[in-house]
Amino acid sequence: MTGPALAVLGVVLLLAAWQAVAALRWFGTTVCAPTVVVRVFADASSRRVLLDGAGATMLEAVEGFGWALLAAVVVGVLATLLPFLRSGLDQLGTIESAIPFVAIAPILLALFSRDTVPTAMAATTAFFPLYLALVSGLAAVSPAVADLCAALGAARRDTLLRARIPAALPVLTTGMKTAIPLAVLGGVIGEWLGSSNGIGPIMLVAMRNYRMPMMWAAVVVTVVIALLLYGGCAALEWVTARRFG
């Protein structure tokens, strides 16, 4: 058997284990079997609710990711052009990344309206890996290329534009791959802070009202969202690695 086939087998085994745990009632009625979850998706009205929620969450995650990327580019280029700021900015970034998600909640609630909090939260959680990837990518230009630029008397701006940025792109896309799940996480947590749309509230409401099939369907939707966005970033990584790697 080949590698991918075995990997699929692993996922199938996982699903089988899930079905078995549900059938054996190890956790009472809290675990719904995959077959029950499929039935939730078959129902038109609950499918609508779930798809609407998925769309909202995906939009928030992507939007927040975009803001985080913009901020990472601004700060990262600043840290590269002004080296004396570098260690301080790194430290700021580390502190920012160490802020527990719920700890930033009071700050975001004071700054934004409840419906924009998910986007802001996604941006905060996704920022640091992007910044880290960008800064290390901009530094990853090969010494030979850097020497050549210096020998040809290239201005700092030209070195940045023609040598550093192309060298940074593959590293940045790898960083995007690690950051996008965090953006999804930030979006969902932001929704829990009081937003009315998205998959997060659906999950929370289902949990409180003991609608277990709906809750597990929401989990499946979250997994699919994460997979789709991750797959997009992985594809982007593949493309840049071929072009610039």
């Binding site: 998600f101 996008i180 799940p181 965090l182 999804v184 996480l185 969902v188 947590i189 997060g200 999950m203 989990v219 979250t222 997994v223 994460a226 997979l227 966005l229 991750y230």
Partner: peptide, 8 residues
């Protein structure tokens, strides 16, 4: 790797 556990 692509599913943040905390969401669930």
């Amino acid at each position: 790797q692509c599913l943040p556990v905390a969401t669930i």
